[in-house]
Amino acid sequence: MNNKDNFSELRQLLKLKRHEVPPPGYFNNFSGKVLGRIRAGEAGGEQTFADRLQAQAPWLANFLAIFETRPGLIGGVATSLCLLLLLGIVFTENADSPQKNVLGAAVTADSQSASVVTSVTAPVAAASPETTGLAISTNPAVSLQPVATLFGQQDQNQNLLFQSASFTGGNN
């Protein structure tokens, strides 16, 4: 097989390319133009973010360059990220659903009847520190919300909103 000979002919043919040169005098001012642009960049601080990135983290710049050359790839990555985000939201909602039910029930209780709150907190309110010497607050946090305001019972439940969540020694 004369592949080698053919390649030698090809190589000779390719040598023609060496005769392709820019016009005479082109290189006389080439370095001057380069230095001029360098000086202009230094004076104006025109080094772009991309240039700084390339200088400091070439691997990251090359990675980002992949997206520039393949627009489809960035679409795929963006779609994957969106799917991941959606999956995350779905899983988070599923994980939180029992807690949400509790909260939902509490809110429903608040909105449906303030008397429920009153009935739950009434014994505690009745047991004043003056009579028992001990005040205990075991009310759920929702009972401290200004729910009474929503139903015009601010005066009736006002004291309940500010019950201290601590023990108070009375007759010790």
């Binding site: 390319k17 060496r18 392709e20 040169v21 820019p22 290189f27 080439f30 370095s31 133009k33 380069v34 642009r37 360098i38 960049g41 080094q47 240039d51 390339q54 200088a55």
Partner: peptide
């Protein structure tokens, strides 16, 4: 310049890329 020109077959592109290569190298 010659390497870039033989890759691009375009004088203007070779000119720009050659200058930018030297500028980038300096930076």
């Amino acid at each position: 310049y010659a390497t870039i020109y033989h890759m691009t077959a375009n004088h203007e592109d070779a000119n720009d890329l050659a200058q930018e290569s030297f500028i980038k190298a300096y930076q």
